[in-house]
Amino acid sequence: MDLRPSEQQRAVCDGVSDFLDKEVTPERVRDAEPMGFDAGVWRGLADMGVPTLGVSEELGGMGAGLLDLALVAEAIGAHLTPAPILETQVSLRAVERVDAGLAGQMRAGVEDSSLSSSLALRPARQGVFELVPGGAVSTYVVGLDGEELVCIEADPPGATGLLSNFGDAPLAHRQSDGGSRTVLARGQEARGQFDAALDEWRVLTAAALVGLGSRAVDLGVEYARSREQFGVPIGSFQVVAHRLADVATEIEGAQLLVHEAAWAVDEGRADAAELACMAYLFACESGQHAAAESLHFHGGYGFTLEYDIQLFHRRAKAWSLALDGRTGEFQNLADRLLAGSLAPSGGN
């Protein structure tokens, strides 16, 4: 057991974090609203090879595993980065697993022409992928259409297609039968590939929520140290300190779970699907809780648009709403768990 990121993982994360610290300021995040997309940020990250990090080296990517991507996604989430990074990573990887040629073209499209790509989280209904994350800006959409796993290439709808939402994310409906349509897989194979892609999305979204939650805790802690009432910093009030300790603890737990889930996917472990579901559910819960508590301890200022914590609070909720009802996800997890014995193995 070793919980330290490798040298290489640290180097990649530091590079991305430096860029994000400089470029993706809260002002930049606000300026990108309501579309939730900043072309300059996207270009910068594409130049660094971030959206294509998970593509294999043969196809011109960096061959990163899901754990590498998860570590990067924490930084992406912490900065509320207005660019469909993880959507692109997940969908490129999904395509590469079944159609390397197309994945290579898509990678070139991302790096040369600033295109992006999305995963439709829900199977198409009557020719429409509904509420696709990144769908308003992505040229490529990968999704399940009936018995087929497809990749659609079409001009993104942009602002006209944007479904305005309080997370200020580039959500849009997309045609599953328009544009140039490539069938990637059929039947069982299509379903299996889609499920694998969705699990990767769960893990990376969870990682982004961990980053978001962790930054939200930091904001709350900083505020609690500096804001004074009754002649003392509010962080010296035990209720404030203890509730912040609770959310810090939850985020720490969520981070461990996300890392384990990503590792399990990379290692092809039998419990990877279970862990991906767990990581997503727990990161949703703890990310939202961290942002809500942090906002609360900003008092009235936390409720104003001037303070940054509201940016986190809105996105924590919105990102957690991406899959159809978390209740459905709990059932999903229960199905996965109850297929096994749930015996307390202790260890692995």
């Binding site: 805790v217 802690v221 609690a224 140290r225 003392v232 910093p233 962080g235 010296s236 009030f237 035990q238 404030v240 300190a241 203890h242 912040l244 300790a245 609770d246 810090a248 603890t249």
Partner: peptide, 16 residues
């Protein structure tokens, strides 16, 4: 435990 986390982990000031 929360007090330990808040003081040592989060470096919040001590108080009542």
């Amino acid at each position: 435990q929360r007090t330990i986390i808040a003081r040592r982990g989060l470096e919040l000031p001590s108080g009542r």
